[in-house]
Design a binder for these strands. Sequence first.
DNA 1: TTTGCATGCAAAG
DNA 2: TTTGCCTGCAAAC
Length: 323
Amino acid sequence: MPEGHSVHRIARQFGLHFVGRRVSASSPQGRFAAGAARLDGHEMVDAKAVGKQMFLEFDHHLWLRVHLGMYGAWDFAGDITADATIASAGGRMGQTNQHGTVVGAHEDSLSSIGAPRRARLRMAEQEKLGASVESFPPEPVGAVRVRLLTDVTCADLRGPTACDVLTPDEVLAVIAKLGPDPLVDKGKKAEDRFTATVVKKPTPIGLLLMDQSVVSGIGNVYRAEMLFRARLNPHTPGRNVPEEVVRGLWRDWVKLLRIGVKTGQMLTMDGLRGARYEAALASRDDRHWVYHRTGKPCRVCGTPIVMEEFGGRKLYWCPVDQA
DNA sequence: TTTGCATGCAAAG
DNA sequence: TTTGCCTGCAAAC
Protein backbone atom coordinates (compact mmCIF):
# COMPACT_ATOMS: atom_id res chain seq x y z
CA MET A 1 0.00 0.00 0.00
CA PRO A 2 2.32 2.60 -1.23
CA GLU A 3 2.25 6.32 -0.98
CA GLY A 4 4.26 8.42 -3.39
CA HIS A 5 7.69 7.49 -2.09
CA SER A 6 7.29 3.79 -2.94
CA VAL A 7 6.24 4.50 -6.48
CA HIS A 8 9.31 6.64 -7.06
CA ARG A 9 11.48 3.82 -5.75
CA ILE A 10 9.83 1.31 -8.06
CA ALA A 11 10.28 3.63 -11.03
CA ARG A 12 13.93 3.85 -10.06
CA GLN A 13 14.29 0.07 -10.25
CA PHE A 14 12.80 0.12 -13.73
CA GLY A 15 15.12 2.94 -14.68
CA LEU A 16 18.13 1.01 -13.49
CA HIS A 17 17.32 -2.43 -14.84
CA PHE A 18 14.76 -2.17 -17.64
CA VAL A 19 15.29 1.12 -19.46
CA GLY A 20 17.50 0.57 -22.49
CA ARG A 21 16.62 -3.11 -22.69
CA ARG A 22 14.29 -5.15 -24.81
CA VAL A 23 11.39 -6.43 -22.71
CA SER A 24 9.16 -9.45 -22.99
CA ALA A 25 5.69 -8.66 -21.73
CA SER A 26 3.05 -11.19 -20.79
CA SER A 27 0.05 -11.62 -18.54
CA PRO A 28 0.28 -14.92 -16.67
CA GLN A 29 -3.08 -14.20 -15.09
CA GLY A 30 -4.57 -13.50 -18.50
CA ARG A 31 -6.48 -10.35 -17.69
CA PHE A 32 -3.94 -8.13 -19.40
CA ALA A 33 -3.06 -10.40 -22.30
CA ALA A 34 -4.08 -7.91 -24.98
CA GLY A 35 -2.21 -5.04 -23.35
CA ALA A 36 0.91 -7.11 -22.83
CA ALA A 37 0.89 -8.15 -26.47
CA ARG A 38 1.08 -4.50 -27.50
CA LEU A 39 4.29 -4.05 -25.52
CA ASP A 40 5.95 -7.41 -25.98
CA GLY A 41 9.37 -7.31 -27.61
CA HIS A 42 9.84 -3.57 -27.37
CA GLU A 43 12.64 -1.71 -25.66
CA MET A 44 11.77 0.26 -22.55
CA VAL A 45 12.97 3.83 -23.00
CA ASP A 46 11.72 5.66 -19.91
CA ALA A 47 10.36 5.01 -16.42
CA LYS A 48 8.84 7.71 -14.31
CA ALA A 49 6.58 8.25 -11.36
CA VAL A 50 4.11 11.05 -10.83
CA GLY A 51 2.49 10.85 -7.45
CA LYS A 52 1.19 7.33 -6.99
CA GLN A 53 1.19 6.52 -10.69
CA MET A 54 4.02 5.02 -12.68
CA PHE A 55 4.58 5.36 -16.41
CA LEU A 56 6.84 3.07 -18.44
CA GLU A 57 7.58 4.15 -22.01
CA PHE A 58 8.48 1.77 -24.83
CA ASP A 59 10.26 2.41 -28.11
CA HIS A 60 7.08 2.51 -30.16
CA HIS A 61 5.77 5.40 -28.09
CA LEU A 62 3.27 3.45 -26.08
CA TRP A 63 3.24 3.68 -22.30
CA LEU A 64 2.29 1.27 -19.58
CA ARG A 65 0.53 3.13 -16.79
CA VAL A 66 0.23 1.42 -13.43
CA HIS A 67 -1.49 2.45 -10.22
CA LEU A 68 -1.03 0.00 -7.39
CA GLY A 69 -3.99 1.09 -5.33
CA MET A 70 -4.37 -0.61 -1.99
CA TYR A 71 -3.21 -4.12 -2.80
CA GLY A 72 -0.97 -3.76 -5.78
CA ALA A 73 2.64 -4.87 -5.70
CA TRP A 74 5.64 -5.35 -7.94
CA ASP A 75 7.85 -8.37 -7.40
CA PHE A 76 11.35 -8.11 -8.79
CA ALA A 77 13.56 -11.12 -9.33
CA GLY A 78 16.94 -11.72 -10.87
CA ASP A 79 19.34 -8.80 -11.24
CA ILE A 80 17.91 -5.94 -9.25
CA THR A 81 19.34 -3.28 -7.06
CA ALA A 82 19.25 -4.26 -3.43
CA ASP A 83 19.35 -0.73 -2.14
CA ALA A 84 20.76 0.64 1.05
CA THR A 85 17.63 0.09 3.08
CA ILE A 86 17.87 -3.58 2.41
CA ALA A 87 21.63 -3.78 2.48
CA SER A 88 21.68 -2.22 5.92
CA ALA A 89 19.74 -5.18 7.23
CA GLY A 90 23.00 -7.00 6.81
CA GLY A 91 23.16 -10.70 6.14
CA ARG A 92 19.86 -11.25 7.89
CA MET A 93 16.48 -10.67 6.43
CA GLY A 94 15.09 -7.27 7.20
CA GLN A 95 12.20 -7.58 9.58
CA THR A 96 9.31 -5.66 8.14
CA ASN A 97 6.37 -4.33 10.07
CA GLN A 98 2.84 -3.93 8.77
CA HIS A 99 3.64 -0.62 7.20
CA GLY A 100 6.29 -2.17 5.04
CA THR A 101 9.10 -0.46 6.78
CA VAL A 102 12.31 -2.19 7.61
CA VAL A 103 12.75 -2.15 11.32
CA GLY A 104 16.19 -1.33 12.52
CA ALA A 105 17.35 0.02 9.20
CA HIS A 106 18.26 3.66 9.02
CA GLU A 107 19.29 6.35 6.60
CA ASP A 108 21.58 5.37 3.77
CA SER A 109 21.00 6.41 0.21
CA LEU A 110 20.46 4.86 -3.12
CA SER A 111 23.75 6.35 -4.30
CA SER A 112 25.61 3.97 -2.03
CA ILE A 113 24.23 0.94 -3.77
CA GLY A 114 26.74 -1.59 -4.88
CA ALA A 115 26.64 -3.58 -8.05
CA PRO A 116 23.37 -5.22 -8.87
CA ARG A 117 23.17 -8.57 -7.22
CA ARG A 118 21.06 -11.63 -7.58
CA ALA A 119 18.19 -11.40 -5.19
CA ARG A 120 14.47 -11.39 -4.95
CA LEU A 121 12.91 -8.12 -4.03
CA ARG A 122 9.37 -7.10 -3.49
CA MET A 123 8.43 -3.48 -3.55
CA ALA A 124 5.07 -2.00 -2.76
CA GLU A 125 3.24 -2.38 0.49
CA GLN A 126 6.47 -3.86 1.65
CA GLU A 127 10.01 -3.87 0.56
CA LYS A 128 11.90 -6.84 1.70
CA LEU A 129 14.36 -9.45 0.61
CA GLY A 130 13.15 -12.93 -0.03
CA ALA A 131 15.47 -15.82 0.56
CA SER A 132 14.92 -17.69 -2.63
CA VAL A 133 17.73 -18.40 -5.03
CA GLU A 134 15.59 -20.06 -7.62
CA SER A 135 15.62 -20.60 -11.33
CA PHE A 136 15.17 -17.64 -13.59
CA PRO A 137 12.61 -16.52 -14.37
CA PRO A 138 10.67 -17.77 -11.35
CA GLU A 139 7.27 -19.40 -11.57
CA PRO A 140 4.59 -16.72 -11.26
CA VAL A 141 3.05 -16.69 -7.80
CA GLY A 142 -0.56 -15.64 -7.42
CA ALA A 143 -2.45 -13.58 -9.96
CA VAL A 144 0.29 -11.91 -11.97
CA ARG A 145 -1.38 -9.30 -14.14
CA VAL A 146 1.79 -8.34 -15.98
CA ARG A 147 5.23 -9.89 -16.21
CA LEU A 148 8.02 -7.80 -17.69
CA LEU A 149 11.18 -9.66 -18.45
CA THR A 150 14.65 -8.77 -19.66
CA ASP A 151 17.41 -11.33 -20.10
CA VAL A 152 18.31 -11.02 -16.44
CA THR A 153 15.51 -9.25 -14.56
CA CYS A 154 11.88 -10.10 -13.93
CA ALA A 155 9.14 -7.81 -12.66
CA ASP A 156 5.69 -9.16 -11.76
CA LEU A 157 2.71 -6.92 -11.12
CA ARG A 158 -0.19 -8.14 -9.02
CA GLY A 159 -3.40 -6.56 -7.81
CA PRO A 160 -3.13 -3.11 -9.39
CA THR A 161 -6.09 -0.80 -9.34
CA ALA A 162 -5.11 0.53 -12.74
CA CYS A 163 -3.01 -0.96 -15.52
CA ASP A 164 -3.35 0.39 -19.06
CA VAL A 165 -1.47 0.88 -22.28
CA LEU A 166 -1.65 4.55 -23.19
CA THR A 167 -0.67 6.80 -26.07
CA PRO A 168 1.53 9.82 -25.38
CA ASP A 169 -1.51 12.10 -25.47
CA GLU A 170 -3.33 9.93 -23.00
CA VAL A 171 -0.35 10.00 -20.68
CA LEU A 172 -0.30 13.78 -20.83
CA ALA A 173 -4.00 13.86 -20.07
CA VAL A 174 -3.55 11.69 -16.98
CA ILE A 175 -0.65 13.75 -15.72
CA ALA A 176 -2.51 16.98 -16.40
CA LYS A 177 -5.13 15.95 -13.87
CA LEU A 178 -2.57 15.42 -11.15
CA GLY A 179 -1.41 18.00 -8.67
CA PRO A 180 2.29 18.79 -8.33
CA ASP A 181 4.75 16.12 -7.24
CA PRO A 182 7.85 17.53 -5.54
CA LEU A 183 10.13 15.13 -7.40
CA VAL A 184 8.64 16.02 -10.77
CA ASP A 185 7.71 19.66 -10.35
CA LYS A 186 10.68 21.25 -8.69
CA GLY A 187 11.06 24.79 -7.49
CA LYS A 188 8.76 27.55 -6.40
CA LYS A 189 6.25 27.14 -9.22
CA ALA A 190 5.02 23.88 -7.76
CA GLU A 191 4.71 25.41 -4.31
CA ASP A 192 2.80 28.34 -5.78
CA ARG A 193 0.46 26.05 -7.65
CA PHE A 194 -0.33 23.98 -4.56
CA THR A 195 -0.78 27.07 -2.44
CA ALA A 196 -3.03 28.84 -4.92
CA THR A 197 -5.29 25.79 -5.07
CA VAL A 198 -5.56 25.31 -1.33
CA VAL A 199 -6.16 28.90 -0.27
CA LYS A 200 -9.22 29.31 -2.44
CA LYS A 201 -11.04 26.12 -1.44
CA PRO A 202 -13.67 25.73 1.26
CA THR A 203 -12.77 22.03 1.47
CA PRO A 204 -11.15 20.89 4.74
CA ILE A 205 -7.38 20.74 4.52
CA GLY A 206 -7.51 17.11 5.66
CA LEU A 207 -9.32 16.26 2.43
CA LEU A 208 -7.27 18.52 0.20
CA LEU A 209 -4.03 16.80 1.16
CA MET A 210 -5.48 13.46 0.03
CA ASP A 211 -6.81 14.90 -3.23
CA GLN A 212 -4.40 13.82 -5.96
CA SER A 213 -5.49 16.69 -8.16
CA VAL A 214 -4.34 19.13 -5.49
CA VAL A 215 -1.04 17.48 -4.61
CA SER A 216 0.39 14.17 -5.79
CA GLY A 217 1.57 11.29 -3.70
CA ILE A 218 0.19 11.98 -0.23
CA GLY A 219 -1.80 9.11 1.28
CA ASN A 220 -3.46 8.43 4.59
CA VAL A 221 -0.27 8.08 6.61
CA TYR A 222 1.49 11.15 5.31
CA ARG A 223 -1.75 13.16 5.56
CA ALA A 224 -2.18 12.47 9.26
CA GLU A 225 1.48 13.02 10.02
CA MET A 226 1.79 16.23 8.03
CA LEU A 227 -1.26 17.76 9.69
CA PHE A 228 0.16 16.96 13.08
CA ARG A 229 3.58 18.29 12.17
CA ALA A 230 1.87 21.53 11.16
CA ARG A 231 -0.34 21.42 14.30
CA LEU A 232 -3.27 21.93 11.96
CA ASN A 233 -6.87 20.95 12.58
CA PRO A 234 -7.85 18.64 9.71
CA HIS A 235 -11.27 20.29 9.44
CA THR A 236 -9.91 23.75 8.74
CA PRO A 237 -11.15 24.93 5.35
CA GLY A 238 -8.28 25.38 2.93
CA ARG A 239 -9.08 29.05 2.48
CA ASN A 240 -8.82 29.59 6.23
CA VAL A 241 -5.31 28.20 6.46
CA PRO A 242 -2.78 31.06 6.45
CA GLU A 243 -0.80 31.12 3.22
CA GLU A 244 2.50 30.69 5.02
CA VAL A 245 1.16 27.57 6.72
CA VAL A 246 0.07 26.18 3.35
CA ARG A 247 3.53 26.85 1.97
CA GLY A 248 4.94 25.12 5.02
CA LEU A 249 2.84 22.05 4.24
CA TRP A 250 4.27 21.93 0.74
CA ARG A 251 7.83 22.24 1.99
CA ASP A 252 7.20 19.54 4.54
CA TRP A 253 5.94 17.24 1.79
CA VAL A 254 9.06 17.97 -0.24
CA LYS A 255 11.13 16.97 2.75
CA LEU A 256 9.16 13.88 3.75
CA LEU A 257 9.00 12.56 0.21
CA ARG A 258 12.73 12.97 -0.22
CA ILE A 259 13.35 11.05 3.01
CA GLY A 260 10.84 8.39 2.02
CA VAL A 261 12.41 7.78 -1.38
CA LYS A 262 15.86 7.68 0.12
CA THR A 263 15.08 5.27 2.96
CA GLY A 264 12.06 3.39 1.70
CA GLN A 265 10.34 4.19 4.96
CA MET A 266 7.74 6.73 5.95
CA LEU A 267 9.87 8.50 8.50
CA THR A 268 7.85 11.36 9.92
CA MET A 269 9.25 11.84 13.39
CA ASP A 270 12.51 13.51 12.45
CA GLY A 271 11.59 16.16 14.99
CA LEU A 272 12.12 13.63 17.77
CA ARG A 273 15.68 13.24 18.93
CA GLY A 274 17.89 10.75 20.59
CA ALA A 275 16.64 7.79 22.55
CA ARG A 276 12.96 8.59 22.07
CA TYR A 277 13.44 8.60 18.31
CA GLU A 278 15.33 5.32 18.38
CA ALA A 279 12.68 3.76 20.56
CA ALA A 280 9.91 4.92 18.29
CA LEU A 281 11.66 3.60 15.19
CA ALA A 282 12.26 0.25 16.80
CA SER A 283 8.63 -0.30 17.66
CA ARG A 284 6.72 -2.44 15.24
CA ASP A 285 3.52 -0.56 14.96
CA ASP A 286 3.97 2.78 16.64
CA ARG A 287 6.48 4.88 14.82
CA HIS A 288 4.39 7.88 13.93
CA TRP A 289 3.11 10.99 15.65
CA VAL A 290 -0.58 10.16 15.29
CA TYR A 291 -1.15 7.62 12.52
CA HIS A 292 -2.71 4.43 13.86
CA ARG A 293 -2.37 5.68 17.45
CA THR A 294 -6.05 5.85 18.45
CA GLY A 295 -6.35 6.26 22.23
CA LYS A 296 -2.63 6.38 22.77
CA PRO A 297 -1.19 9.48 24.41
CA CYS A 298 -0.08 12.25 22.11
CA ARG A 299 3.72 12.28 22.05
CA VAL A 300 3.66 16.00 22.74
CA CYS A 301 0.78 16.70 25.13
CA GLY A 302 -0.41 13.28 26.32
CA THR A 303 -3.98 13.70 25.14
CA PRO A 304 -5.46 10.52 23.66
CA ILE A 305 -5.22 10.50 19.89
CA VAL A 306 -8.59 10.61 18.16
CA MET A 307 -9.67 8.55 15.17
CA GLU A 308 -12.55 9.55 12.96
CA GLU A 309 -13.88 8.59 9.57
CA PHE A 310 -13.12 11.43 7.20
CA GLY A 311 -13.60 11.33 3.48
CA GLY A 312 -14.13 7.58 3.68
CA ARG A 313 -10.77 7.03 5.31
CA LYS A 314 -9.53 6.91 8.85
CA LEU A 315 -8.09 10.11 10.14
CA TYR A 316 -5.91 10.31 13.25
CA TRP A 317 -5.19 13.53 15.06
CA CYS A 318 -4.54 15.19 18.39
CA PRO A 319 -7.55 17.32 19.39
CA VAL A 320 -5.37 19.49 21.63
CA ASP A 321 -2.22 20.14 19.63
CA GLN A 322 -4.26 20.39 16.44
CA ALA A 323 -7.10 22.38 17.96
C1' DT B 1 -6.99 -21.43 11.90
C1' DT B 2 -9.97 -17.80 10.68
C1' DT B 3 -11.25 -13.10 10.34
C1' DG B 4 -10.86 -8.44 9.36
C1' DC B 5 -8.35 -4.63 8.08
C1' DA B 6 -5.14 -1.70 5.14
C1' DT B 7 -0.62 3.59 2.91
C1' DG B 8 -6.27 3.89 -2.95
C1' DC B 9 -8.20 4.21 -6.88
C1' DA B 10 -11.69 3.20 -10.78
C1' DA B 11 -15.82 1.28 -12.40
C1' DA B 12 -20.39 0.04 -11.61
C1' DG B 13 -24.89 1.23 -9.90
C1' DT C 1 -22.49 5.53 -3.10
C1' DT C 2 -21.00 0.89 -3.39
C1' DT C 3 -18.05 -2.65 -5.11
C1' DG C 4 -13.80 -4.77 -6.89
C1' DC C 5 -9.12 -5.35 -6.82
C1' DC C 6 -6.85 -9.93 -4.55
C1' DT C 7 -2.77 -9.41 -1.09
C1' DG C 8 -0.19 -9.56 3.56
C1' DC C 9 -0.55 -9.12 8.04
C1' DA C 10 -2.07 -9.01 12.88
C1' DA C 11 -5.61 -9.92 15.97
C1' DA C 12 -8.99 -12.90 17.40
C1' DC C 13 -10.59 -17.46 18.02
